[in-house]
């Protein structure tokens, strides 16, 4: 039994028929081809699937596609604009805030939320903000530095 849904993703409207049980992350990845959002645990713990729903981060592995009906979504694919990297992306690149890169899109979405709410976070606040995003590669230190670097660049902008 399919349900019709209409969503706006990265500024573009999509209308699709989906099964009610389809997870939002599968909808984004497989129906819309937006594979930048990753699946790491399917249980809301790891944060690899973090996207923005109505301007707030959610873990798209525990949201149903039908729950996003009529709503506005942003994914990693929208973070750079016209080929220009976002300062958060620049921060991760400059400070080596990633290794295998699998957690990175979700991490960047959480950092986007953090810096939107708190433009000048302390190291402790940064660590707290990304507690819902697991990284197995970096030990987080370079991620913290990436966020500090991004915050500095964004304040100066």
């Amino acid at each position: 039994m399919q349900r019709a849904i209409k969503v706006t993703v990265n500024g573009k409207e999509y209308e699709r028929e989906v099964e009610p049980r389809m997870l939002l992350v599968h909808f984004l990845r497989e129906e819309l081809g937006l594979t930048g959002t990753h699946i790491g645990c399917e249980t809301t713990v790891c944060g690899a699937c973090t996207v923005m729903l109505e301007g707030h981060t959610v873990k798209s592995c525990t949201v149903l596609a039908v729950q996003a009906n009529g709503k506005n979504l942003e994914t990693i694919e929208s973070v750079a604009s016209d080929g220009d990297l976002h300062p958060i992306q620049e921060g991760f690149w400059n400070e080596h805030g990633l290794q295998c890169g699998f957690c990175t899109p979700g991490m960047i979405m959480s950092v986007k939320q953090l810096l939107g709410d708190n433009p000048n976070p302390s190291r402790d606040e940064i660590r707290h903000a990304i507690e819902g995003n697991l990284c197995r590669c970096t030990g987080y230190q370079h991620i913290v530095k990436s966020v500090e670097s991004a915050a500095k660049a964004m304040v100066q902008e």
Partner: peptide, 19 residues
């Protein structure tokens, strides 16, 4: 030197097996 791998990884354009 910053990594040559990173642009595809920070923009969500890299291709892992599930992609």
């Amino acid at each position: 030197v910053r990594r040559t791998e990173d642009p595809r990884l920070i923009t969500g354009t890299a291709t892992y097996v599930d992609d």
